[in-house]
Simulated assay, not measured.
Amino acid sequence: MKNFGFEDLKLVDPPDLSRDSEAYGFAGQAREDILPNADEVTLDHLAANYHTVALTATTNEDSRKHVRFPFSTPAELSERLATVDAPTCLVFGREDVGLTNEELAQLDEICAIPASEEYPSLNLGQAATITLYELRNLALDENQLPDVELERADEPIVERLNDQFGEFLEAIDHPVEKRAKTGRLFRRLVGRAHPTDREARTLLGIFRRASAHLNFYGDADDAAAKNADAKDGAADAAASDAEN
Rank of each mutant, 00 (worst) to 15 (best):
K2Q: 10
G5K: 02
F6K: 14
F6H: 13
K10A: 14
V12Y: 05
D13H: 14
P14E: 09
P15I: 09
D16I: 08
L17G: 08
L17I: 13
D20A: 08
S21V: 06
Y24P: 08
F26M: 12
G28P: 13
Q29C: 04
Q29S: 08
A30W: 05
D33Y: 08
I34C: 10
L35T: 04
N37K: 14
A38K: 11
A38M: 09
E40A: 10
T42F: 05
A47D: 00
Y50E: 02
H51G: 03
H51K: 06
T52G: 00
A54W: 09
L55T: 15
L55W: 05
A57V: 15
T59G: 06
R64K: 14
H66A: 03
V67C: 10
P70T: 02
P74Y: 08
S78Q: 07
R80E: 06
L81G: 04
A82F: 00
D85Q: 12
P87Q: 08
P87S: 12
L90I: 15
G93R: 14
R94A: 14
E95L: 13
E95F: 11
D96T: 15
G98N: 15
L99W: 09
N101Y: 10
N101P: 15
E103V: 01
Q106I: 07
L107F: 00
I110L: 10
A112C: 11
A112E: 01
P114H: 02
P114C: 02
Y119F: 13
N123E: 12
T131K: 05
Y133S: 02
L135I: 05
N137G: 03
L140R: 14
D147H: 06
D147M: 07
V148W: 11
L150W: 10
E151F: 08
R152K: 09
R152T: 14
A153F: 00
D154P: 04
P156H: 00
I157Q: 01
V158I: 12
R160P: 01
N162T: 06
D163Y: 00
D163I: 00
F165W: 04
G166D: 08
G166Q: 04
F168K: 01
I172M: 03
I172C: 05
H174K: 07
H174Y: 13
V176D: 11
K178F: 01
A180D: 09
K181P: 06
R184D: 04
R184Q: 11
R184L: 10
L185I: 01
F186P: 00
R187M: 02
L189N: 08
G191N: 02
R192S: 04
D197W: 06
R201G: 00
G205C: 05
R209Y: 06
F216S: 07
G218T: 06
A220T: 12
D221S: 07
D222G: 05
A228E: 10
D229W: 06
D229Y: 07
A230F: 07
K231Q: 08
D232A: 15
G233Y: 11
A234R: 15
D236N: 14
A237K: 14
A237M: 13
A238K: 09
A239H: 10
S240R: 15
S240T: 15
D241T: 13
D241P: 05
D241H: 11
A242I: 11
A242S: 13
E243C: 10
N244D: 14
